[in-house]
Design a protein around this nucleic acid. Structure first.
Lengths: 222, 222
DNA sequence: CCCCGGGTTACGGTTTCCCGTAAGAAAGGC
DNA sequence: GCCTTTCTTACGGGAAACCGTAACCCGGGG
């Protein structure tokens, strides 16, 4: 009636503790925890080999570097690796990340089963999400639904974020065509660059490129 | 031999749980907790009136808005209010904030007793910090010391961040003198604006203002 | 085949920004 | 008082960015 074998990948000790406590409250007996992504993958593989595979992985997104160098450096890559190692494992992401672009990508491209944001009632929501995906496969937070819809401001194309990224790195506008060509991105003409910048500024009611870069920074697009 | 009455102000349920557990481990019996800043101040005042004042406040910095509108909206303002209500109360900030500029200001301007960053071994560090400030008044994380030193890149003056802030809001460079005068900031001449921007770019080895705004964004200066 | 339309690029004029120089103003020493 | 030093401001040439227009390329329909 509930997940039996759960693995927690979370580098923050405090978060790790409260997730464990939450699982305890749910009556889940086997809840292992690791602080590093590499360990997570290892444990999952080993459990499979021993015919005791995990049911559920709860993972954070951002893992901080330290002396203990890792092959897998973040939750996103961990999920990719896990999807290969054990495709049927359900994945719940528990992170403070609040950028619609990032969360959308998790659902759409990596096919995670649930995303719970570290926020006001996160422990309660964690329980709800776990219960939900145990039977129905997907959980999408009510909070999140509106956030995802709120991104109708402007649909950034690949070339757009490439341009803004180059700008934010100090590349002069007139040199951007050259860099775009090198990356095989088109259109790459200087006029096109100017036109797209103009378009973005107009759509977002900005007047200067400085505003564009901070905007994209805020939304995690660069 | 240890704090007797502790108040926790932390809106994230999960963090709240693990802080409580940590205090439990330390043998602190009276650990109240609130999820809103206004409640924190109320409880502190009430406890004082009842001659049972708190010894220690553990608070987060960022509190998220919700339907429950608050007078005090964040940890910084809470600390200011608390310092007035009960100057001798020791304050430990427990937050994910990692910007040297912000943390420095907490120690220097608000006189907090300890800052523990939500990070890999945060629960352990929390215990250490609590023990330390119980006897010695100030705790500064070893991790942090180096971070604070690492900010020797460029010392931003008030006028610098004002200029960059205006730029990031889309104010054309040539209009910045006008806005600076309105705020009573000097120097305000256009040449001075240009000169300061040039100075900053040179010091940080940037070539464009776009880089400056993302840099300041990253370090929480704007 | 030609024509057409969307998307891309090239070209000019105008504005803004960049940067060096020099004039002006304020603070401190003699 | 005067002079020096430092900070601030004013000016002007040159580069970059901005913006409108027009030419170009390229696939689809007639």
């Amino acid at each position: 009636m509930m997940f039996e074998r759960v693995l927690i990948a979370e580098d923050h000790e405090s978060s790790n503790i409260s997730v464990r406590k939450t699982l305890e409250d749910l009556g889940i007996e086997i809840a292992h925890y690791v602080f590093y992504c590499d360990d997570a993958l290892t444990w999952i593989q080993k459990a499979r080999q021993n015919d005791e595979p995990y049911d559920l992985l709860i993972t954070d997104l951002s893992f901080e570097e330290d002396h203990n160098k890792q092959r897998i450096t973040g939750g996103t890559e961990l999920i990719k690796a896990v999807r290969q190692a054990q495709p049927n494992l359900k994945i719940l992401v528990f992170s403070a990340e609040n950028k619609a672009a990032v969360i959308d990508a998790l659902y759409d491209e990596l096919g995670i089963n649930a995303y719970v944001r570290k926020a006001r009632n996160d422990a309660q929501e964690l329980k709800l999400a776990i219960n939900t995906i145990y039977k129905s496969n997907k959980y999408i937070s009510a909070n999140l639904r509106q956030g995802i819809k709120a991104k109708n401001a402007y649909e950034f194309a690949d070339v757009d974020i490439a341009i803004i990224s180059l700008l934010s790195q100090g590349i002069p506008q007139k040199n951007i065509p050259f860099h775009l060509q090198q990356k095989g991105i088109s259109p790459s003409g200087l006029s096109s660059v100017e036109k797209r910048l103009n378009l973005m500024r107009e759509a977002l009611e900005f007047s200067k490129n400085e505003q564009l870069v901070v905007y994209c920074k805020d939304f995690g697009l660069i």
